[in-house]
Every structure is written in C-alpha cells, then in structure tokens.
C-alpha cells in the first residue's frame, strides 16, 4: 500500500530524507520514531505530494505519487499533529464537507454512524468544532478515514499533547482501522504508543531509516534503548 524506494529530499545542501526505502502493507502499522528533523514529517509530506522529492519514488496503492497526485489522495487520509477543522461548523458538518469534497456523498445516517464508530460522544455530533478538544478533533479525523473508506492512513504525531486516556482511545481506533486492512504510517515521538499499536517500528535519524523492528519482537525497554542508542543519547542515559 505504501512504498518508498530510495526516496530522497534535499533542501539546498541539507538532506532531509536520504535514500529511504520502506513498505507498509494492508493491515500494517509502521511507526516512525525519531527526533525533530529526522525526516519523518518530510516523508509524509512527500507521500501526500505536498513537496516533491529530489530523487527516488513514493507510491500509494501502486501509484506513483508525483505522477498521480490527485488519484493517490483518494486512498489517503491524513491526520496531522493538530487536526484543524472548520471551527464554526459542527462535527457532522465537517465530516460531510471533507468527505464530500473527497467524492463521498454520504447520508446523515451514514455520517452519524461513522462518527459513532470513531468513538465521538453523540452529544458532540452537532456541536461546533471550536468547542472540541484535540482528542475529539482527532476522532473526527478517524471518522473521515472511515467515511472515505481509506486504504492508507498517514499520521504525523497524532498523539502528542493528548492525555493518556485520549491517547489510548486513539490507539484503539488505529487497531480498528488496522483490522479493516488500512495501511498506517505514523510519525511519532511516543515510544509507548508505538509499541502498543505498531506492526513494525522504524527509527529515523538524519533522514535515514537507521533500524526497523517487528513490534512483537521487541520490548518497550529494548525499544527505548535502541532509540537512545540511535540518537546517540548514551550520555544522557548514563
């Protein structure tokens, strides 16, 4: 579903992403860990076609993103760190609008069903987004993924700033989507959540995928150690 092959992005002399090759299949969650500036968000931006790669390829559902920027977006739902919806529209109106412009004409009944499935409380459906917490907005984002019948979910630090309960709920929602066959690529700093939800975990540094693990095969402590080793934080640890 998500494939990058020697994907590289340079900003002048600075290489943000360096020969990145990765693959996320249906029903898999790949969590990319890394410090700020490691190249996680740049990778997601290239997968979304927001920025053009310097070299290499990025594919969504077998289609080259650079050549098919609009077609590939039909399969994608993107949830950034701070999902901004229209504050003066309600949750159901936002869902109707964004799924509508994405080409999904849904009835009020269907919209309500997707919001319910995303775990949003029913009394919030008609409330304006301006009254929503970040966690509630993320749920609307998940509802959009459900409404779009998305194949690929790109998440850029979605749990940062969420309280543990909201973060846990978000993790459960990701599992639901995973079970539906959605390929998820999540950039995060949250090692715990990554270990909880991921099928695979990659550690990025200097634009390169330094290490990749199968989530089941590594403990949280080992993951933390690997992360800190990769980041060269041994002194801090000691």
């Amino acid at each position: 579903m998500i494939t990058t092959n020697k994907l590289t992005k340079k900003f002048g002399d600075f290489t943000a992403v360096d020969n990145l090759s990765l693959s996320v299949k249906e029903g898999e969650i790949l969590c990319l860990l890394g410090a700020n500036g490691a190249g996680k968000s740049t990778t997601i931006n290239m997968l979304l076609g927001f920025i053009k790669q310097t070299s290499g390829t990025a594919e969504i559902n077998g289609l080259d993103v650079a050549r098919n920027p609009l077609k590939t977006k039909e399969f994608i739902t993107y949830i950034p760190e701070n999902l901004m919806l229209y504050p003066s529209l309600s949750a159901i109106e936002n869902l109707d609008y964004f799924s509508g412009i994405a080409g999904k004409k849904l009835s009020p009944h269907e919209l309500t069903a997707f919001l319910k499935e995303s775990g949003l409380q029913e009394e919030a459906f008609q409330k304006r987004i301006s009254t929503f917490s970040k966690g509630m907005r993320q749920k609307v984002g998940i509802a959009l993924a459900l409404a779009k019948d998305t194949k690929v979910l790109l998440l850029d630090e979605p749990t940062s700033g969420l309280d543990p309960k909201a973060s846990n709920e978000f993790g459960e929602l990701l599992q639901k989507l995973k079970n539906k066959g959605v390929a998820v690529l999540m950039a995060t700093h949250d090692l715990f959540r990554a270990k909880e939800v991921a099928s695979h975990i990659g550690i990025m540094k200097d634009g390169k995928l330094q290490q990749e693990f199968v989530a089941e095969d590594i403990s949280l402590t080992a993951l933390e150690k690997a992360y800190l080793d990769t980041m060269n934080y041994k002194e801090v640890l000691s």
Binding site: Y78, Y86, I101, L154
Partner: peptide, 10 residues
C-alpha cells in the same frame, strides 16, 4: 492549519 487537511483530499 486546515489547508493541510484540505490539500490531502483529492
């Protein structure tokens, strides 16, 4: 910040 969500639509 809503442009990123918009631009991620087809």
């Amino acid at each position: 910040g809503s442009l990123r969500l918009l631009a991620s639509q087809p």
